[in-house]
């Protein structure tokens, strides 16, 4: 099941040229771009692992592409996203975030229904991938 999170995720995967153009758009808007990685893409998992530092002073998107290639080499079987932060209000806030790498197989989520008192039902989504321990979930 294809994970759809962040911008552009209903489109076909962006090519590297398209990623580069988006990143350049962010940089030209003075947003700091960075990369994050996870093997647990649950929508409520906001804390992905950072790949290096946010890039504050790199005027060209080639810098991020260099890091993305290094990141894919190590974590090509995980989700990688680009996050762009805007600090113009005095604090960093996410302006744009989109997936730039995903595992070859995406097993998706199991929907669990818990029957509670009074015919109430609580729903839980659980990634099949998260059945395995961290680091062994894909590939």
């Amino acid at each position: 099941m294809r994970i759809t999170q962040g911008a552009f995720s209903f489109l076909p995967d962006l090519t590297d040229d398209q990623i580069r153009a988006q990143v350049q758009y962010c940089i030209d808007n003075k947003w700091a771009v960075s990369l994050e990685v996870t093997d647990d893409p649950h929508p409520r998992n906001t804390y992905w692992d950072m790949w290096g530092h946010p890039m504050f002073d790199n005027p060209d998107a080639a810098a991020l592409m260099m890091e993305l290639n290094a990141c894919r080499k190590l974590y090509g079987d995980r989700y990688i996203r680009v996050v762009a932060f805007d600090a113009s209000h005095g604090w960093e806030s996410v302006k744009l975030s989109f997936i730039v790498n995903r595992p070859a197989e995406e097993p998706g989520y199991r929907l669990e229904r818990q029957e509670a008192a009074g015919r109430m039902i609580r729903y839980t989504t659980r990634p099949y991938a998260a059945d395995k321990p961290a680091g062994a979930r894909y590939g």
Binding site: D57, N58, P59, D60, A61, A62, A63, M66, E67
Partner: peptide, 11 residues
């Protein structure tokens, strides 16, 4: 070295 290279990219 990589930090410097990243800064210099495009220039």
């Amino acid at each position: 070295t990589k930090e410097i290279l990243k800064k210099a990219m495009g220039g």
